Simulated scan of single mutants.
Amino acid sequence: MGFPSDPDTGAMWAVLLVALGLPALLYAGIARFTGHGRKGGAVWRPLNDRLYLVCALLAVVGHAGGSVVVGSWGDLFGFMPTAFMGGCFSSALAYTCVGDQEGRALRPELLPLAPYALALGFFGRIAG
């Protein structure tokens, strides 16, 4: 099917997305484990952040879409890791760029994270 289903292209995009998300994940993780939040705010707690769940759900949708394009619908290997990566990286990016959650699920400046999570799921599925 060309570009969308090429495993090498999927792997390349997955690696690029992970490379973008990993520094934010490390920063947010250090803030979480040291107990010192970003700019004096709350520490990163991804499971209490509704954005984490939204992005994980979008990664699941991306994984399902990638399964359809590749033609291996029903192959669930890598399903949960991709969803976890999508939610975790997006939540870490949100925390790193904007700060603590402040109880809101979505904020206008965080909307670019939705396509990020979707692409992470999609290309993660192709690469897997």
Rank of each mutant, 00 (worst) to 15 (best):
M1P: 08
G2C: 00
F3W: 12
P4I: 10
D6V: 02
D8W: 08
G10P: 01
G10H: 05
V15H: 08
A19M: 10
L20K: 01
L22A: 15
L22C: 07
P23H: 13
L26W: 13
Y27C: 06
G29V: 12
F33N: 08
G35I: 01
G35A: 04
R38T: 13
K39V: 03
K39A: 14
K39T: 10
K39H: 15
R45F: 07
P46Y: 05
L47Q: 11
N48V: 04
N48R: 14
D49S: 03
D49P: 01
R50N: 12
V54A: 14
A56V: 07
A59F: 06
A59G: 14
H63I: 00
H63G: 11
G66N: 10
S67C: 03
V68C: 01
V68T: 10
G71Q: 05
W73E: 14
W73C: 10
D75A: 02
L76G: 05
G78A: 12
G78C: 06
F79D: 10
T82A: 15
F84C: 01
F84P: 00
F84K: 02
M85P: 02
G86H: 07
G87Y: 09
G87S: 15
G87T: 14
C88M: 15
C88R: 09
C88T: 15
F89S: 06
F89M: 09
S90F: 08
S90Q: 06
S91N: 05
Y95S: 10
Y95T: 15
T96Q: 09
T96P: 02
V98S: 11
V98Q: 08
G99K: 06
Q101C: 05
Q101H: 12
E102L: 07
L106R: 01
P108S: 11
P108E: 03
L110G: 07
P112Q: 05
L113V: 05
A114M: 15
P115Y: 05
P115N: 09
Y116C: 08
L118G: 07
A119T: 02
A119D: 00
L120G: 07
L120M: 14
G121R: 00
G121T: 08
G121I: 03
F122Y: 13
F122I: 02
F122G: 01
F122M: 02
R125V: 14
G128A: 04
